[in-house]
Design a protein around this nucleic acid. Structure first.
Lengths: 221, 221
DNA sequence: GCGAGATTTGGACAGTCGTCAAGAATTTCT
DNA sequence: AGAAATTCTTGACGACTGTCCAAATCTCGC
């Protein structure tokens, strides 16, 4: 039988593949940092390499393309961003606590991860021009929407209300607030950031108990 | 007196200045179209010149910089975009009519001017990385906010309600819906665009009559 | 219609870009 | 330890960028 030999070869091959994948993610992380710093338009492969411990040639050893590299970096971003409010949802036992923790986390990540967030908006915008980004962008946006919907539906549950809008509407409205707060924050307009922070709890109430209730209150469609 | 002579020279000089400014706006329009087509990251001066009837060298005769040129193009955009709902506000006599006309205009320009809108979001995002764009972007965003607030406050007036959020919150929430509808539209996800269109009237009601009323109902602060 | 000034052209420049390949350096296997 | 395979560096390439400039063309007052 060749089984024993194959498993041995497989082990070797798998270890090599793992190492290969390890370097890929390592370089993807360096790419992510460079993109967050410079934005898509001004990020070059040589600049990415300088933010890693390798030279620029190695990027074409691990990635076929610049597109391949950036796509991988975007996927790295997703892993970081998409579970941001899960602890808030899991750890809250009252509506007031959930609302407070959500608002705090919202503005904490706004300030702490501002470069990463502006990168996301940059890449999402690129997908409006470059079709090859669209698939990944839409998938990440779905996950972000689901993340927000977990907050909204849990808040409705705890407060005894019903969501007032669809999942997608809830997400994009809160995302609009986040984008504006990000722009204000990076522009040093602290007063406006504070105003939005003060107003966000009221918006949350608007989205779950205000006005006519959203017809289909169940999840995605 | 030299007055007669000066007015004559002035006439000549003014005509030349007018001609100069005319070319500037003409080239700024060509720039706007190129940017809307390719996005900021892939727009080059030679590409802009090809979309005009001149050669690439002439751009440095009328503009000092690439930045100067793009800034001028952005200002061109503002003139087009910022009065979009004024007719809707002026021509509506009932809340129902205003709501219907607003939603229709909202999705009409979404589809008709999609390239222009994605350019705006592209440039607004650039300002997150490039400080030199921020001033113009913030000014345009203020005008857009004021434009939306005219709709919201008029709708509140006609419906006998009060705005439920601040001007900035109303604007960014509706803008979030617009961005998402734009992405969905460009991605061919017509069902989602239709869903948002169907939901927008309810969102509008949420923003003026739903939940607790916004404390300071007057204009900008 | 002439001539001075305004306008436009097209090429040259110094950089930077993504991509690639040849060879050095390193790791891994026997 | 030596051989084989891998990983990484370095330099080169053609294409493209923003900028600048000398010369060609055009405009318009006289």
């Amino acid at each position: 039988m060749t089984e024993a030999v194959e498993t041995k070869q497989d082990r070797i091959a798998r270890r090599q593949v793992d190492k290969f994948e390890g370097r890929r993610t390592q370089l993807a992380v360096a790419t992510l940092h460079t993109l967050a710093e410079l934005g898509y338009a001004r990020t070059s492969l040589r600049e990415i390499a300088q933010n890693s411990e390798f030279s620029h040639g190695v990027l074409h050893y691990y990635f076929t393309d610049k597109r391949d590299l950036i796509t991988q970096a975007v996927r790295q971003y997703e892993a970081v961003c998409v579970t941001r409010y899960d602890d808030v949802v899991a750890g809250s036992t009252t509506a007031e606590q959930l609302r407070r923790d959500f608002v705090n986390t919202f503005f904490a990540t706004l300030k702490a991860d501002a470069p990463l967030h502006r990168l996301w908006y940059d890449l999402r915008n690129q997908s409006l021009f470059d079709e090859s980004f669209r698939e990944d962008v839409l998938e990440i946006d779905e996950h972000r929407e689901a993340m927000i919907w977990r907050v909204i539906s849990r808040y409705a549950e705890l407060s005894g209300g019903e969501p007032a809008t669809s999942p997608v509407a809830s997400y994009v409205m809160l995302d609009g607030i986040f984008q504006r707060a990000l722009l204000s924050s990076l522009s040093g307009m602290d007063a406006q950031v504070a105003q939005l922070e003060e107003e966000l709890p009221r918006v949350l109430d608007l989205l779950v108990s205000g006005g006519t209730q959203f017809p289909q209150a169940t999840g995605r469609e």
